[in-house]
Design a protein around this nucleic acid. Structure first.
Length: 276
DNA sequence: AAACAGTGCAACCGCTCTGAC
DNA sequence: TGTCAGAGCGGTTGCACTGTT
């Protein structure tokens, strides 16, 4: 696997691990513990570099590794945490017991990233891709009013919001844009994570799945050591109350997941009546 | 059935950062 | 202050598997 071995010059083996090597490494670490990776291969009788041993142990052999497909909850947690933490895979992995940073990174790059792109979400900023928006039709909608815009701004990337306000002005909605700009700054200041954490989201007896989902994200975020420079916006989790069937929660298919993620994140398909 | 294309993922490299000494 | 080991990350590779023609 991977590119040509770098340790060939040292006579060290590279490439896929054999069951015998796995057994040697596991037995040694169980007996002596992990650490001192430089000397470990020699002591364990392995012709591998320490880094390779470390990666093999951390990403594959560790007893608490959870194998298999990511659950819907895990995927949703990854998306939410990535919106907060960015590509800090190890930090994300800390919130997903049994998952490694490498596994999460691979899953992100091969599944989540593609899905977000397909549904018009920028996987870097988690904002709707402006090149896929039809804001002009949005702003000419008779259902659009200031109140709805004020609720929407909690979901919007500031760049998208600025563009929307600009377009609103050009559509004769200058008054609304002006009012938007006059809103208290707390409503648009980014990275006030405590705003999210402090929110008390009451259980919704009709939509308990959504509540559990929100609670899970909150629980996960509560423990995160978040940077003030986080890109996570002042998202109102209460706005993510979507009807979702238990079958999806319990591991729906790819299509179901995509549909849900699309509904959850896709700006252009947001049902604005829900916000009004 | 065979060839080909697309996808998933384990594993790698090179680099930076951090903490211990 | 400099050096070293370990940890972590982004990017990449190529095998194995699956789907399509």
């Amino acid at each position: 696997m991977g590119r040509s071995p770098c340790c060939d010059k040292n006579g060290l083996k590279k490439g896929p691990w054999t069951p015998e090597e796995d057994e040697k490494l596991s037995r040694y670490i169980h007996a002596h513990g992990a650490g001192n990776w430089r000397n470990l291969p020699k002591n364990a009788g392995l012709e591998r570099c320490g880094k390779s041993c470390r990666l093999r142990w951390i990403n594959y052999l560790r007893p608490d590794i959870k194998r298999g497909r990511f659950s819907f909850e895990e995927e949703e947690t990854i998306i939410q945490l990535h919106s907060v933490l960015g590509n800090k895979w190890s930090a994300i992995a800390e919130r997903l017991p049994g998952r490694t940073d490498n596994e999460i990174k691979n899953y992100w790059n091969t599944h989540v990233r593609k899905r977000l792109l397909r549904t018009g979400i920028d996987p870097v900023t988690h904002a709707p891709r402006l090149d896929m928006l039809d804001l002009s039709s949005l702003l000419t909608s008779p259902q659009l009013n200031l109140a709805s815009l004020l609720r929407l701004q909690t979901l919007l990337n500031p760049e998208a919001l600025r563009l929307a306000m600009s377009l609103a002005s050009s559509h004769g909605g200058g008054g609304g844009a002006q009012l938007l700009q006059n809103q208290p700054q707390a409503a648009v200041q980014p990275n006030h994570f405590e705003n999210i954490v402090d929110q008390q989201i009451p259980p919704n007896p009709i939509n308990n799945d959504s509540f559990q989902c929100q609670q899970m994200v909150q629980d996960n975020l509560m423990g995160a050591n978040l940077s003030q420079n986080s890109s996570f916006e002042n998202v109102n989790l209460d706005s993510f109350s979507l009807n979702r069937s238990p079958s999806i929660i319990n591991g729906g298919g790819e299509d179901e997941r995509e549909r849900f993620c699309s509904d959850l994140l896709r700006f252009e398909s947001l049902n604005f009546e829900d916000f009004m």
